Simulated assay, not measured.
Amino acid sequence: MSEDPMVEEFFSEVNDKYYPQVMEGLELLENGDLGQGIEILARPLHTIKGVTGFMAGFEEASHFTHKIEDFLKKVQSGEVDSSPDNVTLLSRGVNMIFQVLEQLRMGDTDTAEREEVLGLIAEASATRQDNGEAAGAGVDTETLNGVTIIKVNEPRVHLDAQFKPIISAILSIEPGDPVLLDLDGVLTFGSGAWAAVASMGVTFRIAACNVSPDAKQTLIGWGFDKTISVYPDRETYFTAQ
């Protein structure tokens, strides 16, 4: 593989560009700057995942990087706790991407360590789902000026029990009617929850207000703002109608 010009060019980019960026991001994580560290890590990991997906013999690196990138997004959104153990696991997984790349380049077929890391990541993700706020606090609804306002009562919306009451409330509304999600008090809103709400944007006119910075970052980062409009508060929303 090492004689392939495309492979050589890719590894040159890895060494000169992506690895230094990753090291910068990991250093920020170690210093407790989780948000900025993850922002810096996201760019090179996304590129590595995409490029290796088209490189013959490096598909496993793309798959592994995708798993690490997914774990990174879950930690970022709060879907997985940003505990010291999970941040350490994230750092280990990111570092291992380069190890996997080198293994595949050299023809090394040993997958034991990467499987161990993926197993730990699956366990960390499942722990949050098992221990997380399984019993949803539900929603309150009201109608104002023809708009159904759904006030979400959960501080974190990630699990089925936490976002299904939102979906049920939307489904009780006539198709085409406007819906405003009031997320005042909601700290984080997972990508899966946003996806479930956004999927209904074809049938309903959905907007959200009082969106926390973390919840908004997840919304925009996954592109769901194309379906769900965001407003600072209720007053701004109704002024814009």
Rank of each mutant, 00 (worst) to 15 (best):
S2V: 13
S2P: 00
D4S: 14
P5M: 09
E8R: 15
E9C: 02
F11T: 10
S12F: 06
S12G: 11
Q21V: 01
V22R: 03
E24F: 10
E24D: 13
E30R: 14
N31G: 08
L34V: 15
R43S: 14
L45C: 05
L45Y: 03
H46L: 13
F54I: 11
F54P: 00
M55L: 15
F58D: 07
F58I: 06
F58C: 09
E59W: 03
A61P: 01
H63K: 14
H66L: 11
K67G: 11
K67V: 14
F71N: 10
L72C: 14
S82P: 08
N86F: 10
N86Y: 11
S91H: 09
R92Q: 14
G93Q: 11
G107K: 05
D108H: 04
D108Q: 07
E113D: 11
I121R: 10
A122I: 02
A124P: 04
A124Q: 08
R128T: 12
E133G: 05
A135F: 11
A137C: 04
G138S: 12
G138D: 11
E142Y: 12
E142G: 13
T143H: 07
N145Y: 14
N145P: 00
N145I: 06
G146V: 10
V152E: 04
E154I: 08
E154S: 10
D160W: 11
A161Y: 02
Q162W: 04
P165K: 06
I166K: 05
I166H: 09
I167G: 06
S168T: 15
L171I: 00
G176Y: 03
G176I: 06
D177M: 11
P178C: 09
V179R: 01
L181P: 00
L181I: 02
V186L: 04
L187T: 14
F189R: 01
G192I: 12
G192N: 09
A193H: 03
W194P: 00
A196P: 01
A196H: 05
A198F: 05
G201Q: 03
G201R: 03
V202K: 08
F204K: 05
R205A: 13
A207V: 02
A207C: 06
A207D: 04
A208E: 02
P213V: 07
Q217L: 12
T218F: 02
T218H: 03
T218W: 01
L219A: 08
L219D: 01
G221S: 12
G221K: 05
G221L: 03
W222C: 08
K226V: 04
Y231L: 09
Y231I: 10
P232Q: 13
Y237T: 01
Y237R: 00
A240R: 06
